[in-house]
Computed example of a mutant assay.
Amino acid sequence: MSGCPCGLGEYESCCEPLHKGQQAAITAEQLMRSRYSAFARQQIDYIQSTTALGQQQALDIPAIRDWSVSNQWLQLDIVQANEKLDKSHALVEFKAHFHDGKQVQVHHEVSHFVKQAGRWYFLDPTLEQTLTMKQPCICGSGKKLKQCCEQFL
């Protein structure tokens, strides 16, 4: 048994079942923690599969892999979690502590998540995508972007 990078127990009973697809995150915070653990354990497929469905193809997988591998992941702090922004959106503010080979760094982010078909997904605001407000939402809800996730990107 080994400690889970997310800080909530043993990896085998914490984030590993999510990484292996044996269960889905119940909350946005749990998804955030499992994504942090995925970075720490180089589970890049999990990072991709838990990003909003309409954003997965735009991810720079080699860059994500390089960032995951080149850093030593030290600690995750959840600053706040608001699981009910509306019926299907949540917010998690966190600090990811890591060592980049030269010094300790802290990545502080407020992340938004969307729940579709009973599963939570990360909405990545950093992706360079041409979005129009009348297009179908990137989360796969079937709604127009402006009526769904636009305010969270």
Rank of each mutant, 00 (worst) to 15 (best):
T130W: 01
F113K: 02
Q22P: 00
S141W: 03
Y11D: 11
Q42K: 10
I47D: 05
L18T: 05
Y11K: 11
Q42R: 09
V106P: 12
L59G: 04
Q43E: 09
L31W: 06
R41S: 12
F113T: 05
V104H: 13
Q42T: 10
S37K: 04
Q72H: 15
I44T: 13
I44G: 03
Q151I: 10
Q30P: 01
G54N: 05
C149I: 09
V79D: 09
F94P: 01
Q42S: 13
S34H: 01
Q22G: 07
Q57E: 15
S88H: 07
V114E: 04
E16Y: 06
Q23P: 00
Y121P: 06
V104C: 10
V104L: 12
V79L: 14
Q147M: 14
Q129M: 11
H112F: 06
A52S: 06
K144E: 13
I26S: 10
I138Q: 04
Q72T: 15
A24L: 04
H97K: 14
L76K: 13
L31N: 07
S141I: 01
L31P: 06
G7F: 04
Q57N: 13
E109S: 02
L131T: 07
V92G: 02
R41C: 13
T126Q: 10
L91M: 11
G118T: 03
K95W: 00
